[in-house]
Design a protein around this nucleic acid. Structure first.
Length: 582
RNA sequence: GCGCCCGUAGCUCAGUGGAUAGAGCGCCAGGUUGCGGACCUGGAGGUCGUGGGUUCGAGUCCCGCCGGGCGCGCCA
């Protein structure tokens, strides 16, 4: 796998020695697979060595003697593979094995980072673990601007995509446009009312319509494009928006949808959140074939469910028997009215995603949709390939907007919302992105808007960016002849504590990446970057980089280059800029 | 009532069954004849909501209870 000059390689090497030890002492068959891999952690206290492992504790066997097991593990490893990179070991506590790494390990570790350059930490996933993954996030019905809650899912989803790709997955990022159904009808009608108002016709927006003022702006644009061709129809219907002809509402809905989507694209582009696929729900109803009166992907899905005998008709509606797969009750797919439910098209949509050849599907949903999870998993179990694990539903908790100490309630229909654009304008893209991935998706996120603006200068993101800019400044001070950038071979050098701490922090980077992938937790990278920046600032304080001693300077310049590369990589994976100066 | 998430420092939150539970902000006291002071050092501040259980070892896993958020549509 990898050499001994990274933490993963060290752990792998220890695991091998451990397996041999178990064979000898416990009579375990080689390759039995029951030996847990050695878990290597960076010691929290200097007296515990540089790194330590609990391998002996978990692997000495029931009734074993962990301390003696650890001692033997240390003796064998140090006499064998660890000879060149480890200075000494000790057994501590109930059976920890603490390792004191040799100067050569630090030099070798730094050397390998520099050799990897900007690819350091890339491709941590084993070839067999790499998948074609579709990640769907933000998805929302296009009835109004994206609000701060969506910013969280956008930032988190995008960071996850970047990290997945960096680690070795083949990622497709997808936005599902919910441009079909009742909410869109209300949107079209609300837009019709706003158009009418602009034309001087009395027509209020319905009580349950979209009240936001942004619809006035869209109405202005549509009227400018289309002149007054809707004037007669709107005037005839006034003041009842429900009386506006369906054809007019549909056209307004369609044009309005395009306008809102254009806003989405602009906002998401500003947030540095690109999508590979924008999939329209409405298009799932178009296409060849027909089943139970539906064409396209929806018809296909219905046919498949019938083939699996998972549908039943009752009370004039068509139901999917999700209770067979753990749901609380069966769910309607086709209403009494003959209209499809959102659930039906969602099944067709996810079925289509599978058809497109993905190994794994991830949806990021807001917590207000979590009740939808059991039925979706049930549908996935009901349909071929009957594998609910192919669909992973990440539920992100909500965002609370605080204003002067109190929660601010938002409602899109009421139009009383703080948009992503508002937030970005207030604190900038970098702070928005960094802030939004700072917490686990399992925790609700509080944003105090006043504080966010006021504190923009001491936002944690600047701490990390400052470390990067500071390094850039140091490297700018290099004179080419004294510290050639091409001098890639490091001298023998015994690193000081602050240098070792920084190097260990850098050595963690690949582990942080695989950890963020496994746990779907971009916030782990966010936290890591703060810790790495802190280690750099301490190092900077204690160690003069441009030392008179050429060997010392060469090592420290290398350390700076490696730190700069990791900071830049990490920030880029979170969608945050890494400025050369600030 | 049922389901999911949360409860850790004054506040907002990290924390992979491991050793003495951490960070940011806030508060207190310090630090620069050198490479960027948007930095660094030290301090105060904790019954990890609560009661049991599992384990060599529990903030972490299991069960009960308390408190908060979100859901429980033929809306999306």
């Amino acid at each position: 796998m990898s050499g001994l000059y990274d933490l993963g390689g060290l752990a792998a090497s220890l695991s091998e020695t451990l397996a041999a030890l178990r064979t000898d002492q416990l009579g375990e068959q080689p390759g039995a697979g029951s030996a847990p891999p050695a878990e290597l952690t960076i010691s929290a206290h200097p007296e515990h060595g540089d790194v330590s492992t609990n391998a002996a504790l978990v692997a000495s066997g029931k009734g074993g003697r962990p301390r003696e097991f650890a001692a033997e593990l240390g003796r064998r490893w140090l006499a064998g593979p660890g000879a060149g990179v480890c200075r000494s070991y000790e057994v501590a506590g109930p059976g920890f094995l603490n390792l004191f790494l040799a100067p050569d390990w630090y030099r070798g570790a730094l050397q390998s980072m520099l050799d990897a350059g900007e690819d350091y930490g890339r491709g941590v996933l084993a070839a067999a673990a790499r998948q074609r993954v579709n990640i769907e996030f933000v998805s929302v019905n296009p009835t109004g601007p994206l609000h701060v809650g969506h910013a969280r899912y956008a930032a988190m989803g995008d960071a996850l995509c970047r990290i997945f790709a960096f680690a070795g997955h083949d990622v497709t990022r997808e936005f599902y446009i919910n441009d079909y159904g009742t909410q869109m009808l209300k949107f079209g009608q609300s837009l019709a009312a706003r158009c009418a108002q602009r034309l001087g016709i009395e027509m209020p927006v319905a009580e349950d319509g979209y009240q936001g003022e942004y619809l006035l702006e869209i109405a202005d644009r549509l009227l400018a494009e289309a002149g007054d061709r809707w004037h007669a129809a709107l005037a005839a219907a006034a003041p009842d928006v429900a009386a506006v002809p369906r054809a007019v509402v549909d056209e307004l809905k369609s044009r309005g949808c395009d306008a809102v989507l254009a806003l989405f694209r602009a906002t998401l582009e500003r947030l540095r959140v690109p999508f590979d696929v924008w999939k329209s729900e409405a298009t799932l109803y178009d296409g060849p074939g027909e089943h139970r009166g539906f064409r396209g992907e929806v018809g296909k899905a219905l046919a498949e469910m019938d083939a699996e005998d998972e549908l039943r008709e009752s009370e004039g509606a068509v139901w999917l028997c999700t209770t067979r797969y753990g749901d609380d009750k069966d769910r309607v797919l086709i209403r009494q009215t003959g209209e499809p439910t959102y659930f039906l098209s969602d099944i067709a949509y996810h079925r289509d995603k599978l058809d497109r050849g993905f190994d794994h599907l991830i949806d990021i949903w807001g917590a207000d949709h979590h009740g939808y999870v059991p039925r979706m998993r049930a549908a996935f179990t009901a349909l071929p390939p009957h594998d609910p694990d192919k669909l992973e539903l990440i539920i992100g908790q909500l965002v609370n907007l605080m204003e002067s100490g109190a929660a601010k309630r938002m409602s899109k229909r009421r139009g009383d919302i703080v948009t992503v654009d508002d937030l970005v304008e207030a604190i900038g893209v970098d702070a928005t992105r960094f802030f939004m991935v700072g917490r686990s998706h399992d925790s609700t996120l509080d944003i105090d808007l006043d504080l966010a603006v006021e504190q923009s200068n001491k936002n944690p993101v600047y701490y990390v960016q400052y470390a990067h800019a500071r390094i850039a400044s140091i490297l700018r001070n290099l004179s080419d002849d004294s510290h050639s950038a091409s001098a890639t071979v490091l001298p023998a050098y015994e690193a000081e504590p602050a240098e070792r701490a920084l190097l260990l922090a850098l050595a963690r980077f690949p582990l942080v990446i695989s950890d963020a992938v496994e746990r779907r937790g971009p916030h782990r990278l966010h936290n890591y970057l703060g810790e790495l920046a802190a280690e750099f600032h301490v190092f900077y304080k204690q160690c003069r980089v441009l030392d008179d001693d050429a060997a010392v300077a060469a090592f420290r310049v290398g350390l700076c280059r490696a730190a700069k590369a990791v900071l830049a990589s990490g920030l880029r994976l979170l969608g945050v800029s890494a400025p050369e100066q600030m």
